[in-house]
């Protein structure tokens, strides 16, 4: 198991869609202040794990415990939006979900909705324009500006989010997730569709978040350069089962992983992208 204090415990997670067993008894732990990656071939159930964690699916069986400074949260028991609001689980999406017709800044301020709601005394103080709300809004904008600087989007603060280039949208989504001041940040394929340069910038950003903001990161990823480069701990899934769990080095050498990515001694006719992944894996 991983080093460091555990942040997220997944125990016997099983997810069944009708007759399809998408996840079969998967257990792992994600450590605090570390980057944990879930990898696996297509259809291995990575995103399903993610959706269970972030409240979009109700797991069939299993316990998902988040060790929050305020106490433990059982994620499978609480309502979808509360997972972000109370437990502080932030997530991004594989196919970016920004608010496209709202500005970049508004996207970031929206992530601070609950803080601002309280400050506006559930709208009443806000309607009267009271100082307590104006101060809170100024603070929210400052936090947004901090993250805008971090992801180099300050210049575009007033653009509609939908008009940003793809790579910028990805970074904005991460910044937005960070604006809820999470205890764990879950990233669903953050490098998908990025070019190598953007991918390197992303790696830096994730390491920055881990080291400076000291939160745990959990990512589902295909891109081996991201996974191997920055992960502290890797969980490998195949056909909904966990087949390996360890540091990048351990996983790289694990015969079960190689088999899963390769198929049984069937080297010859690999599709080129699989072969490339495999090379990086080795």
């Amino acid at each position: 198991m991983s080093a460091g204090t555990p942040l997220l415990g997944v125990e016997h997670l099983t997810m069944r869609f009708g007759g399809l067993l998408a996840i079969d008894d998967v257990s792992f732990e994600a450590a605090d202040k570390k980057i944990t990656a879930i990898i696996g071939p297509n259809g291995a159930g990575k995103t399903t794990v993610f959706n269970c964690l972030t409240g979009f699916y109700q797991p069939t069986i299993g316990r998902l415990t988040l060790h929050h400074p305020k106490g433990d949260f059982l994620l499978e028991r609480i309502e979808g939006y509360r997972i972000a609001k109370d437990a502080g689980v932030a997530r991004t999406f594989q196919n970016i979900r920004l608010f496209p017709r709202m500005t970049v800044l508004e996207n970031l301020v929206l992530a601070q909705h609950n803080v601002l709601m309280r400050a506006s005394r559930y709208t009443f103080a806000g309607l009267l324009g009271m100082k307590v709300y104006r101060d809170a809004e100024a603070k929210a904008v400052e936090l947004a500006r901090y993250w805008l600087d971090k992801v180099a989007l300050t210049e575009q603060a007033d653009w509609e989010a939908g008009n940003l280039p793809y790579g910028d949208q990805r970074r904005l989504e991460i910044a937005r997730a960070m604006c809820i001041e999470p205890t764990i940040l879950c990233l669903d394929e953050p490098a998908a569709g990025l070019n190598p340069r953007e991918s390197a910038v992303l790696n830096e950003l994730l390491l920055f978040i881990r080291d400076e903001h000291e939160i745990g990161l959990l990512l589902v990823e295909h891109d081996m350069s991201v996974v191997m480069g920055i992960s502290d701990h890797i969980v490998v899934l195949d056909y909904g089962r966990k087949i390996a769990d360890g540091t990048p080095d351990e996983v790289r050498r694990d015969p079960a992983v190689i088999r899963a990515y390769l198929g049984e001694e069937d080297d010859e006719e690999l599709p080129p992208e699989v072969a490339r992944d495999l090379d990086e894996l080795r």
Partner: peptide, 16 residues
């Protein structure tokens, strides 16, 4: 307005 744009994203940000 965020709800009009994307309800799922709203949920992921803790908006009820």
């Amino acid at each position: 307005e965020a709800l009009r744009e994307d309800e799922i994203a709203c949920r992921s940000l803790g908006i009820n």
